[in-house]
């Protein structure tokens, strides 16, 4: 099951990120994972949050523009070679990764992948013994 990731457009000027986190805080939205892609002029914040629909609404109300895209989340053992083993599966299935980021939990690490054809990739990776996470799982981790 893929997970909905929220992306937020941020202009590259001081205080923008803080403005966004203030909105999330005000509405009790918990960030589970976050990465920032930045260019000279703007940045895109990509996040997994506990309630992605709530987050979309409150951010839009605050004039942020957002976009929802499905990502794949896999748990891997928090040991050396953990990511390598996971990527090997992607390699075997010939899945092209647009971008990825990570967050570490208490027992496992979690990898988030954005791929071109999400459901196709999901199907190819199924049955390879990977531990994938659902939206509910992400909220609980």
């Amino acid at each position: 099951m893929s997970v909905q990731q929220i992306s937020v457009f941020l202009e590259n000027k001081p205080g923008m990120l803080k403005k966004m986190t203030a909105v999330l805080k005000e509405h009790d939205i918990n960030i589970r994972a976050l990465s920032v892609a930045d260019t000279k002029d703007f940045g895109i914040v990509r996040m997994l949050v506990n309630d992605v629909y709530d987050a979309t609404n409150v951010l839009n109300e605050a004039h942020f523009i957002t976009s929802l895209k499905p990502v794949l989340v896999y748990a891997i053992p928090d040991v050396t070679g953990g990511l390598d083993a996971l990527l090997e599966k992607f390699d075997e299935a010939k899945i092209n990764i647009d971008y990825m980021y990570a967050f570490a939990g208490k027992t496992s690490a979690y990898m988030i992948f954005r791929v071109n054809k999400t459901s196709e990739a999901e199907a190819k990776l199924g049955g390879k013994g990977l531990e994938s996470l659902t939206e509910e799982d992400v909220a609980k981790v």
Binding site: I44, R46, S67
Partner: peptide, 15 residues
């Protein structure tokens, strides 16, 4: 001003 519907998570698309 970027139009909301044009925004995606991809840097290269915006670029």
């Amino acid at each position: 001003e970027l139009m909301p519907q044009m925004f995606t998570d991809s840097v290269s698309e915006i670029d």
